[in-house]
Nucleic acid binder design. Sequence first.
DNA 1: CCCTGATTCGC
DNA 2: GCGAATCAGG
Length: 185
Amino acid sequence: MTEAVPSWTDERVELLRRLWDDGLSASQIALQIGGVSRNAVIGKVHRLGLAGRVKPIGPAAVNGQRKADEVEIETAVIVEEPTLPEPPAIVAHRPAPDFPLEPRPAAAAPAPSAQPVALAVSERVTIMDLRDSMCRWPMGDPTTPDFRFCGARAITGLPYCTQHAQVAYQPAAERKRDRRVAGMR
DNA sequence: CCCTGATTCGC
DNA sequence: GCGAATCAGG
């Protein structure tokens, strides 16, 4: 097939803008877009004038990559009381990948009974289909082409749906070691 | 060492 | 305009 990438098409640029605005690093964006190096991404970002974005939180928190070299502020887990009638200024940092938190069984043979579904199950959406008020919880590695977002109805004021908001802002509960899938490289 | 973005500069 | 190489920082 034609592996040759056209170049920075509108779609690719749009994706680039979105991912960059989403806080993904250049290397991650490059891996996801494919066909471009991280330098290319950075270069394009600068040309587009997107550089100098506000540094969110979590330089590479997307990957469970921890370095004992430095003490990071990963402890930025916002501890909140069980009651959250109002969305405080929660610092939405990029949550760690979550594979074991899928509320949907793999084999989804709907066997449509005469039962109207009140809420559609989480529909994974791509970055392109991600709209506002959609849960922006990342599913899968941003480095893979099948990277999706939850896409469910997000809580007003929060970037996540009820399901993921819980895990995103869980109280100072115990934290279990998250073992990521077999990493390449 | 790993990573990050910023910049330069030949193409 | 593009991006590899390089730079500078964490």
